[in-house]
């Protein structure tokens, strides 16, 4: 297997707090990886190291053949290939949805404006919010905003997509529309790392599920293995808590 993401013995600290401990992880192209675990276990930190929103103190991270280091240019090169979707959407409030989407393609990839707009409209159409293109983020519902944020990331034509609890800030009735977009993306062959508490989604879509606790990968396997036959006590008690709520 030729991994598109490879982490080797990654360690990270926030001051004295050891948040990632000896993480080894390889992700194959097209793989959908779901990361679960209790609050504070380091899930966000883990995926944020992949596009270098968080630097690491020890270990190696290789993304799409490029080793992440301190060099700003190589960091930017990797970020072009790695899209990220945040819990809080983080759309740019002073730009319309369309402007949000074409900003990076026109400024970073130097795609001609007309072409970027055309591509943006296609993507917005695909997630069902083309009619919202000329509105500002604050005028959209949470679910629409998150779909716009996904489109914004996709407009850069990334090879990898990172999702950090993309549905946790949404009203329950809007979770489905965002998960549907993510399902479609997974089917299209996108490499995805998804931190989520949506166990239904994990069961349906994930190729592999990782359970993290206290900065370590405690257990990993197919959804079937993790959900039906968890090997570790901590995984069992976490799943028990989350599935019976």
């Amino acid at each position: 297997m030729d991994a598109i993401i490879r982490l080797e013995k990654v360690n990270k600290w926030f001051g004295p707090l050891h948040v990632l401990k000896e993480i080894d992880l390889a992700v194959a192209p097209g793989e959908v990886l779901v990361i679960i675990g209790p609050s504070g276990s380091g899930k966000s930190t883990l995926i944020r190291t992949i596009n270098r929103l968080e630097p690491i103190q020890q270990g190696r991270i290789v993304v799409d053949g490029v080793e992440l280091g301190d060099d700003q240019r190589s960091i930017e090169a990797i970020r072009r290939e790695v899209g990220m979707v945040f819990q809080q959407f983080n759309l740019f409030p002073h730009m319309t949805i369309l402007e949000n989407v074409i900003l990076a393609p026109t400024r970073v990839r130097r795609v001609p404006r007309e072409q970027a707009i055309q591509k943006a409209m296609e993507l917005l159409e695909r997630v069902g919010i083309a009619d919202q293109a000329h509105k500002y983020p604050a005028q959209l519902s949470g679910g629409q905003q998150q779909r716009a944020a996904i489109v914004r990331a996709l407009a850069m034509e990334p090879k990898i997509m990172l999702f950090d609890e993309p549905t946790s800030a949404l009203d329950p009735e809007m979770v489905g529309e965002v998960l549907d977009v993510m399902r479609g993306l997974a089917r299209s062959g996108m490499t995805m790392l998804v931190v989520t508490h949506e166990m239904g989604f994990a069961r349906d879509v994930a190729d592999r599920v990782i359970f993290m606790d206290e900065g370590r990968i405690v257990e990993e396997g197919t959804p079937e293995a993790i959900f039906s036959r968890p090997q570790h006590e901590r995984t069992r008690s976490f799943l028990h808590r989350i599935l019976h709520h």
Partner: peptide, 11 residues
Amino acid sequence: GQWEAAQSLGL
């Protein structure tokens, strides 16, 4: 989050 979103797009 605004910085992070912009940075994550490669700006």
